[in-house]
Design a protein around this nucleic acid. Structure first.
Lengths: 242, 242
DNA sequence: GAGTGGTCTAGACCACGAG
DNA sequence: TCGTGGTCTAGACCACTCA
């Protein structure tokens, strides 16, 4: 009833998907060339490419121009833990996460002024954080901090270790989660297809005095990212809600 | 540097996008037919359709088979408030939300057994909730409750009013947010393109005795949905975290 | 340079929607 | 029925990767 279009590209995608999940096509292997696959399935090349585009949007296949189509490695899911505990990145399952951080000074502009509640061109420090698990990119974070709150003279090599400890006491952390297509930059950096949606998290941290001390823009690959938020309802909290 | 492919379809999409944002193409109007647009931009029909597909994936354009391409109405964003306060649906900006609920009895199976921590075929009640704001679908929720906790004899017409009040005291609410492509069903129901990612929220509510009293699977259109989670750090809570 | 994917064309045929 | 979008074809030409 809800299967009006068993089009060829879907049939081909289903077949390849099945072969991947059954292990006939193992992770990392190169698929036959598009021309060969088109011949095998007796379709034209655009149709076959259309089928591959479906798998690509699901994150099952990675296309590398001039080289071939590859079955992606099984996705270890990256879990972002909400609630303001994590400074910048999701925690990988096995802890083998490597983060590079690059700091830049700049002036507030655009959405940042609203997020941080500062005036335009007010001095900020941007931390650009890219996390890898092994060789695969795992998350991209842009963290903005008013410059007077930023660690001033920490060598870049030590930033990763120091950042988590440099934050003032927080009162409220608000995280807004949405999904969107990646910018070309983000797609390149995270090595995902430009057609694969990302999980976009905007985190605003406010200190006990009501000042915004951090705004973080996180981009997580949609094919392997979860964000988990746990709320504990104590009796008092439940009472307070009414 | 990051502009390697100013391909025609992107140029066309950019042009149409600009016309929409400038108001030259107003919300709700039908675009010229694909054949006419192809002639105007001097490209073939597949290329033009490719350009429209980009706008469709961004949620700017809605294609209606046999009828035409339409500029979508500006998206009032649907905001889901985390923390277990909302029974089933995001809150619309202006409160004009209409929800239809359909209840079904079924046995636990698949992921549901793990989510609800019950044995296979254990009796459940499913509430299928579809929320509309005006004529546009806003969210789709499938809520599963162990049958002995489900309201037994409430007429369906009253369910919407009763559901929020029927829940036992909660201890922990855990919400997992991810993004994925909609199933064909979901795309139909939410009236979104099958290529537009959705925000998928799995909410598991546990009562004070540690029993899972509800598992909810929510699907929100990715082009207009946000999920907001706010964490209040009291001094004691911060201390407890260490 | 050989082989791969990336883009595009010009046109065919089918399926859906509205009058 | 007619105009619309949906799918597909066969092949051209370009750009990238790797030996």
């Amino acid at each position: 009833m809800t299967q009006p279009a068993p089009s060829r590209r879907h049939a081909i995608a289903d077949d390849l998907r099945a072969q991947i999940s059954k292990g006939h096509l193992q992770a990392g292997v190169r698929l036959p060339s598009e021309a060969q696959l088109a011949t095998r399935y007796a379709v034209s090349t655009p149709t076959l490419r259309n089928a591959l585009a479906l798998l690509q949007a699901e994150g099952l296949v990675e296309k590398i121009h001039g080289s071939g189509n590859f079955v992606r490695h099984p996705l270890r899911r990256a879990t972002y833990i909400g609630g303001g505990h994590m400074p910048n990145a999701p925690a990988p399952a096995d802890g083998a996460l490597h983060t590079t951080i690059h700091a830049t000074n700049l002036g507030a502009h655009g959405h940042l002024t609203a997020l941080l509640k500062v005036s335009p061109r007010s001095p900020l420090t941007e931390f650009l954080c890219l996390s890898h698990e092994g060789k695969t990119p795992h998350s991209l974070a842009r963290i903005y901090v008013p410059r007077d709150l930023a660690p001033a003279d920490v060598p870049e090599g030590l930033l990763a270790a120091r950042l988590p400890n440099l934050r003032p006491p927080l009162a409220v952390v608000q995280e807004t989660v949405s999904t969107r297509l990646p910018t070309p930059d983000e797609a390149m950096t995270l090595r995902i297809s430009p057609t694969l949606a990302i999980l976009s998290i905007t985190r605003v941290a406010t200190d006990t005095a009501g000042r915004v001390v951090e705004a973080a823009l996180l981009a997580l690959p949609g094919d392997r990212a979860d964000a988990v938020f746990t709320t504990h309802h104590t009796t008092e909290a439940r009472r307070a809600e009414r």
